[in-house]
């Protein structure tokens, strides 16, 4: 399988005044297409920083990040926006849906920024909502949906552009146990259909669903292991 993500010697240093804080202190990771990877670590370990770098929301202070063969380390904000739009689908802990828009309008947003014509956008948005089991909720606003349903809308939005990478930051952090189960099942299905997923979590039982666990601590990857439960290849 071909390499999707390659991080080499990635460091990230935050400066605030004279204080310097090194959040990532030299990370080397390779993730292949079709992998389901969970990044685990306590808060403050640097996993959110890693998520931001993987999602092209931020640039490393040092080191190289190659996504799908393209070095992103020296791109400007507009080019990074284009990469986020086409290659990465985000699922956030707080769902981040726009409350004034219906489900399908939320889902079509990335397609709008990609410049697709409206009829095609609507069609693809509804198809994506169908895939996450919300085909009958396309015209509901986020406020009219449960937490689990809202997060599924967010997953539909992440998938609608057919991105190379699905990046989920604590996707179950705001869900009850039943919705968490549903969400993890959805991820299992997506993985089974060949999608690359990187999931960031601090919950060990969520992590065990993934085929590979990366444990990060104090800015370094301390453990890189293949799990048995989640391994399905």
């Amino acid at each position: 399988m071909s390499t999707l993500i390659e991080l080499t010697g990635v460091r990230k240093t935050y400066r605030s005044g004279s204080l310097e804080f090194e959040a990532l202190r030299g990370i080397d990771i390779r993730i292949d297409e079709g992998e389901y990877v969970a990044v685990i670590g306590p808060s403050g370990s640097g996993k959110s920083t890693l998520m931001n770098l993987l999602g092209c929301l931020d640039l490393p202070t040092e080191g190289r990040y190659v996504l799908e063969g393209e070095d992103t380390s020296s791109l400007d904000e507009a080019a990074l926006a284009a990469i986020r739009n086409r290659r990465i689908g985000f699922v956030f802990q707080q769902f981040h849906l726009l409350p004034s828009m219906t489900a399908w309008r939320n889902v079509e947003l990335p397609l709008a920024y990609a410049g697709l014509p409206r009829p095609e956008r609507r069609e693809r948005a509804i198809a994506a909502l169908d895939k996450v089991g919300l085909g009958d909720r396309v015209d509901h606003r986020p406020g009219e949906l449960s937490g689990g349903q809202q997060q599924r809308v967010a997953v539909a939005r992440a998938l609608v552009t057919e991105p190379a990478l699905l990046l989920a930051d604590e996707p179950t952090g705001n869900l009850d146990s039943r919705s968490t189960g549903d969400m993890l099942e959805l991820f299992d299905e997506l993985h089974a259909s060949g999608r690359t997923i990187v999931l960031i979590t601090h919950e060990p039982d969520v992590a065990t669903r993934a085929g590979r666990n990366l444990v990060i601590d104090d800015g370094l990857i301390t453990i890189d292991r293949t799990t048995t439960t989640g391994a399905r290849t």
Binding site: L57, E77, A81, A82, R84, H96, Y113, A114, R157
Partner: peptide, 15 residues
């Protein structure tokens, strides 16, 4: 937050 989300979804600064 909305601006951040739109940017994450691929809105360039100019947009």
């Amino acid at each position: 937050r909305e601006i951040g989300l739109r940017k994450a979804l691929g809105a360039a600064p100019n947009v």
